[in-house]
Every structure is written in structure tokens, then in C-alpha cells.
Write a protein that binds this DNA or RNA. Sequence first.
DNA 1: CGGTGTCTTGAATACCATCAAGTCTTGTGG
DNA 2: CCACAAGACTTGATGGTATTCAAGACACCG
Lengths: 245, 245
Amino acid sequence: MTARPGLVTVESVALRTQLGCDLCAANGFDLCQAMSLLAPETVIRVVPARRVIYREHELYDEVPFICDGWAACAIRLSNGSRQILSILLPGDMVSAALLFDARADYLVEAITDVHYRTFKRADVKASLFKHPDLFEKFSKAFIEEKIRADQLVVDLGRRTAEERIARLILNLEDRLSRRGMANQTTKEIDFPLRQHHIADATGLTPVHVSKVLSEFRRSGLVKISDRSLAILEPARFRRIALARR
Amino acid sequence: MTARPGLVTVESVALRTQLGCDLCAANGFDLCQAMSLLAPETVIRVVPARRVIYREHELYDEVPFICDGWAACAIRLSNGSRQILSILLPGDMVSAALLFDARADYLVEAITDVHYRTFKRADVKASLFKHPDLFEKFSKAFIEEKIRADQLVVDLGRRTAEERIARLILNLEDRLSRRGMANQTTKEIDFPLRQHHIADATGLTPVHVSKVLSEFRRSGLVKISDRSLAILEPARFRRIALARR
DNA sequence: CGGTGTCTTGAATACCATCAAGTCTTGTGG
DNA sequence: CCACAAGACTTGATGGTATTCAAGACACCG
């Protein structure tokens, strides 16, 4: 998910055709790979950080998948505040809900430079019936999405700021590891999130996120620098996140 | 969803066989009705209020549907606090996640006396492939579930206590109306929720729920008495719930 | 070099939790 | 049927967590 400047053109959206998923940062993660086998030739769109990929209240007949980079799927309120529903990593489908509901009120925004591709809603649905194994993969992805949403509800409803932030970080670390995107030895991960992303994902304010993270650093739990993160004391950190399982 | 004492036996779980859904309080709501056509003969279980229907960490090969009464689907933390993920009304499937994941950590508890039936996981999955229209209904139900979960995330992350409670009430009123379970003229609805249910559903404490509801009553917004509820000033009430859309 | 975005820190405040006491209702067993 | 226990709700006092407001440091970019 490091920037690949060569592909980011002056255009807000650059188009690029290629076979397969040579660039896939997620090492052929599950669902996206399975879909790619059925539709190997697609355009891959490239957008710079902070740009909107998917705007609420607009109609799309496509579902985006993240090939490279980080993005955020959020809901925006009329007063400007936002709640991030999920941080999207390479290999992630934006949301299974988009497959069946063309008018979901999601706002998807690139966090880093993002490469993404799309599959046509109708194509995906047709494939589901023809390929039971794809159906299985798809169901699993959807269930996982739902379970994570439910966990987020518990986090926001019943956990403190410290717990929420620690859990977010551990969650990301876990998801990156499963993609082979965490440094196996140093346990260091790319961490392009701004503090306001963390705030929007945890239902807090950027100011308070700053204070909690400072406290984490001061007590030697984590190291955050230069858009990368390392958990220095995994055991103690996990204890914060899982204090109340 | 009023109690039907005749069916509640001394047993904690009474069994009763019947054809179709004569008792269905949801007037043949959507998904459950569709399933019933495929499997008309089932047992209907009856449990008294406050009893557990589905316990976390246990394995089931069945998915429960609510025929009559109210239930709550929650996640419980080790310190005893709970977060209710959804209030289940007649016609509701407990959670589509149970269809694909036998080990979801949900705790389902009866709020009123509850009649429910179950369908075997394998049967449902098989039917999905054979009957595309059922697949459609099912997908819709799942998507709705997800969208409501996402909305709940926004509520807990970005809304005040007043907004959360008002939205919960309006949500329930809406869902009951669509089932023909709200009094068309008086706009009154059965409202068996205890304040601790509201607290667990909104991420608040029972004490604070009491204070907010008292304020709602004092300002003439709602009337709550005898386990039923009426929104006295819908316009003003909606303004609280939708202040920030 | 101004502008914008990011982060930090401190002070004041708001919102909601916690604690506690008391009322009232509901259910239960003697 | 009564006595007692448990659950449900209310209200006030107090406290803690997180927000809001504000100001300043720093980096990056055009």
C-alpha cells in the first residue's frame, strides 16, 4: 500500500487495463481472487489519497474491490460529522450490501493512494448461482462483515476510548497479517491512518485520540512514526483490548 | 404479542405442532412466510419472558424465527454488561449470520412470552439454491439487517442519548407498522421493553434512560404507560431523531 | 512563503456514569 | 391472602470521561 506514483496520473481517475492481479497487494485475498478468475480482464482505477471513490445517494451498477491501498467506508451526517464503518484493506469488497442495494448511503474515501477495480452487480449475482464455491466465499465474506459490524456496535456502545483504539489497532494488525502484509519479525505494519480517521472509526474526537495515543506511547505500548506502527508490548496491549471479552 | 397463557406450560420449553402460521402475529411477514410454505409442518416453541432462546458458545444446527412476542439479540461482555444488537419482532429471523456460522456469539433472550420456530440450517441453504425468489427475499433480509447494524454504529458513535432513544422508538414503531401491528388511529403500539432493554440497546445506563424518558414525557412528546407507547407529537419527535440526518 | 493539514497540550465544560436511597409494582411461597 | 423478596422506576448528589474551545508547533505542498 505504499504509493506507486508512476500510476497516479494528473487525472483524478486513471484507467489501466491488465490481466489478472499482478499488482494485488493482498496476495490474492480470497473473494477478490475468486472473482478475478471469472473476469480476468478489467480496468483498475487509481485514485490519490483523500479522494472519494463512492459517493452516497448516487447510483452505481458496480461493486468496488480494493486492489492496493487503504480506504474508509463511512456514513456522513448532515452536520459534517462522520462515522467510519470499516477500514478497507487490499482484497476487501467495499460492502456486500452494495450487491443488493444500489442506494446504500455509504461514502467511500481513499486513505492512501488506492487502486481498485469493480465488478458489475449483475455479473456477480449471476456467478453466485453458477459457482457454489464462489457463493460460499461470498457468504463468508458477508458474514464476516456483519460480525465485524456487530463487534463495532459493542465497542461503541460499551467500551472506553482506550479499549476502542486498542481494538481497532489489533484488528488492523490481524487483518494485515492474514494478508501477509505485516513484517513477520519486527511486527511492524504500515499505518497510514490519520488521527481523525481513528476518531471517526471509534466514535471519538481527534483531540481525544491524540491524548490516548500519547498515553499509549508514553507507557511504552506502541511506537508510531512515519506512517508505520509497532506494538511494543503485545501482551499488555492485548490486555487493554480484551479486558472485557 | 400479548401473552397467551394457555400455551405457556409448566415446562420451560413447550412444544406444539401445527400447520402453517395460524398464530403469526406478523401477518405473514415476508421471509418467515416464504419459508413456511416450504416447510409447513414445524414445532413452535413457547418460552416465557426473560428466558434465553439461544445461548452463545453453543452449537445449533437451526435458525430461530420469531412467530409472536418480542426478543433481544445481544452480545454479553465478561463483566456482565450487554449490548443489544437488535430487538426481534414477529416475523424476524434471529440473524442471517446464524445460517452460515454455527458459532456466532449471540445471546437471544425473550422480552415478552415468545413463540418461535426454527428451520434447519441445511434446509434453508438448500432452498436458497432451488428457489431464486426465496434467495431474493433472503438477501433483502440480510441487507436490511446489515443496514440497521450500520445505522446503529452511527447512533452509538455519533449521536446523543436523546437522539438514540428517539430513534430506537421510531424504528420500532416503523417496523411494527409495516407488520400491521400498530394501532392505525391512535398510533399506539405495544411497548414491552423495560428501561434496561432500552439502555442495553442504546449503549446507555438504565438511570440515564429513565431521565431522558421522563424529560420526553414532561415535554409532552410521548406517553408511556401500561406497556404501551404513543408518540404524541410526531413532528417534534422526528425532529429530535433526525436532527442530523 | 502563505496555506493547509496534522498533531499536541491545556483549560473549561457537557454529557453521561456511578452511587445511593426511596417508591411502587410484581411475583412467590408460606 | 398476606408477607416478603425481587424487579422496575425515579430522583438527587457526585464524579469521571470525553468534548469543545483555543492556541501553538511542525511538516508538506504548490
